[in-house]
């Protein structure tokens, strides 16, 4: 288990900011490690979930927002279910992802972020997610043609699982309006 040592610049208000944004009381954490032990993606993270909390307490904003950990979390909620202090780390990770995007910190796992974007684009187009166009967009953006996505995709296609054309809903104008409203709100 790695130890956390504070070096470099720390942000005094980081803990408060994260607690406000996520709604989770991170002061309650006593490092029992139940979250990290149960986490399915912790072995692949650069910083383990329990250490993420400790580093937030220490104000290590740059390190936390720039970590791969926040992008590896798939929000399975095992951590939150088992935390004796009822800290929902999945919620926390989502808040950290949003903060990273807002602050313009490049995602350490850039492909995961690109996949989220391709998904939203797909819904924006027709109201429903459509795997073929979504994965095509993802592959073009990530330039990740050969690493895994293409081959299983082709297999599914050959099994007749993917219709070539997306199924659009009738009220696409309504979807467009909702998206536009949201964007004006974000800009405000």
């Amino acid at each position: 288990m790695e130890t956390v040592t504070g070096k470099g610049k720390v942000s005094v208000s980081f803990l408060e900011e994260v607690m406000r944004k996520s709604g989770e009381n991170l002061n309650l954490c006593y490092q029992c490690l139940k979250c990290t032990v149960g986490c399915p993606t912790a072995p692949y993270m650069d910083i383990r979930p329990n250490n993420i909390i400790r580093m937030i307490q220490m104000g290590m904003k740059k390190e936390v927002l720039g970590s791969s950990a926040i992008w590896f979390c798939v929000y399975c909620q095992t951590c939150g279910t088992r935390c004796p202090n009822e800290i929902h780390i999945g919620v926390l990770m989502d808040a950290l992802r949003e903060m990273a995007i807002e602050e313009g910190v490049p995602a350490k796992e850039k492909n995961i972020h690109l996949f989220h974007e391709a998904f939203i684009q797909s819904v924006r187009r027709g109201g429903r997610a459509h795997e073929v166009t979504m994965l095509m967009e993802y592959m073009l953006r990530s330039k990740d043609m050969m690493k895994g996505s293409l081959i299983p995709g082709m297999k599914l296609f050959l099994k007749g699982k993917f219709p070539l054309l997306p199924s659009f809903i009738k009220e696409r104008g309504e979807i467009k309006r909702i998206f536009e409203k949201c964007q004006t709100k974000i800009k405000e």
């Binding site: 796992e109 995961i112 690109l114 993802y138």
Partner: peptide, 20 residues
Amino acid sequence: KIECCGSFQSVGSPDVATEC
């Protein structure tokens, strides 16, 4: 039986999902 399957990591990091 209640473990996570790796979810959407099968797109971005296929190896993670394979392991799960």
